[in-house]
């Protein structure tokens, strides 16, 4: 994570406008301190790295509802899902979308979670949620990003079915994907695939050019593999050291 911080700092120093997004399954799995802290350590480090928004993944909703609510309170970034509800199906767990003002443009980011069963939550179809929320988002934003944990197959379906998506950032895939452009002009990016012992090793870097109307006119994308050649950011490294072995969260 300390080397990820270095990558982020480098990119920030070169960008006029930058968004740092996470496509979900960020908070915990099989390792401490995330497991022990019930995702608190993950939110803490995401705050330190300056994340702007994340989509809730099914893996994040392994937490109990009260733990998720607490993590959302702690997050200094937007926690998004247009299709994950608290039990009862009335109130969304996170925000359906968020809008960032950047250089006179409004960049709207819609969050989606994979449909599945989690105790204390009701997760409905991401496709139906996109159908419901995209028109509203498109009225309010001139650049539309979908931050999706629904999986690449659903993501491709979304791009086929719905116009007006500029960028779809995909998580929860089973294999590494190359950038894909669909006939509508939208782009699909995915940074990483994880397996036990190996997670969070890659960062996607999309450099996008939009005209004054918010139309995508050019892009480049690369996957940065965070190898030991990247220097560890001292502040984050010190923080990681400080929470190793911490049991009282």
């Amino acid at each position: 994570m300390a080397r990820r911080a270095t990558v982020i700092k480098q990119e920030r120093s070169q960008a006029d406008y930058l968004l740092l997004l996470d496509a979900g399954n960020a908070w915990l799995n099989d390792r401490n301190p995330a497991k022990l802290s019930r995702g608190k350590s993950s939110v803490e480090v995401m705050n330190k790295l300056g994340y702007d928004a994340m989509a809730l993944g099914l893996q994040d909703l392994i937490l109990k509802p009260e733990e998720v609510a607490q993590r959302i309170k702690e997050a200094r970034f937007s926690v998004l899902s247009a299709n994950a509800y608290w039990k009862g199906g009335v109130e969304l767990v996170g925000l359906p979308y968020v809008i960032f003002e950047m250089g006179g443009h409004r960049v709207g980011v819609l969050g989606l979670t994979a449909q599945g069963v989690r105790e204390g939550f009701e997760i409905v179809s991401p496709t139906e949620a996109a159908r419901a929320w995209l028109p509203k988002l498109q009225c309010e934003a001139d650049i539309v990003v979908v931050l999706s944990n629904a999986g690449p197959e659903v993501d491709r379906e979304l791009l086929r079915r719905f116009q007006g998506i500029d960028i779809l950032i995909s998580g929860a895939g089973q294999r590494l994907l190359q950038p894909e452009a669909v006939p509508s002009g939208a782009l699909l990016f995915s940074a990483d695939v994880s397996r036990p012992g190996f997670a969070g090793e890659r960062v996607g870097v999309a450099q996008l050019s939009f005209d004054r109307e918010g139309k995508l006119i050019g892009y480049s994308w690369r996957r940065v593999v965070i190898t030991p050649e990247f220097a560890a950011d001292p502040e984050i490294k010190a923080w990681v050291e400080s929470v190793k072995g911490k049991v009282d969260w």
Partner: peptide, 12 residues
Amino acid sequence: IALTILHTNDTW
């Protein structure tokens, strides 16, 4: 606008 999006996923 030139916009950079850094993105991660499945950090666990």
